[in-house]
Design a protein around this nucleic acid. Sequence first.
DNA 1: TCCGCGATTAACT
DNA 2: GTTAATCGCGGAA
Length: 199
Amino acid sequence: MAVRRLLARLELPTDTVSLARYLIGKLLVRELPEGVASGRIVETEAYVVGDAAGHAYRGMTRRNRSLFLERGRAYIYLAYGSSYMLNISSETPGIGAGVLIRALEPLEGIPIMQLNRGVERLRDLARGPGRLAQALRVDRSLDGLDLCQEGSLWLGRGDHEPGEIGQSIRIGISRDADRPLRFYLRDSPFVSGPRSFTE
DNA sequence: TCCGCGATTAACT
DNA sequence: GTTAATCGCGGAA
């Protein structure tokens, strides 16, 4: 198994779009009582400053305050009453923006993820933001966590350069819907949405 | 307080 | 391809 090395905050681009692209190919590591579950990030979306689709658009609230932290923090919320969404804060403190993690290629702890998800098929473990959170048992209790510090959830360096990165409009939003702010690993079967609109 | 609405998913036809 | 489930948030009153 590849060495898991923590990503330092200084390695993370400050700019939201740059961060969304940078995170493709990086590792997301979850430490649970029964063991480690991890995966390679294969799909992200940027929710930039001044973005009408972003949760920070109307200012800071109790729910979205983690988006305004220094880059590399977790912002987690519940969508549709049933699915948790994991985001990583971007920009500088006081600026509300972040990157949604939409899909992982499972690497370690696959049996743990299978139990958490209640499905066997590798491709269905973390393809989609809600599935990903369920596979890694991510919920609001992790909101605000520093992902640049070893702990229950953290970001790791990938062991090689990612392949070709595609770009498209974001999935499932209505406002600011035409902006090409979704990034994904072009050849990965673990990507959730369409693979058209490639750059 | 009330009410409409999702950065989704799974189970349908 | 279509649709119901589900509930916290936040804007309106």
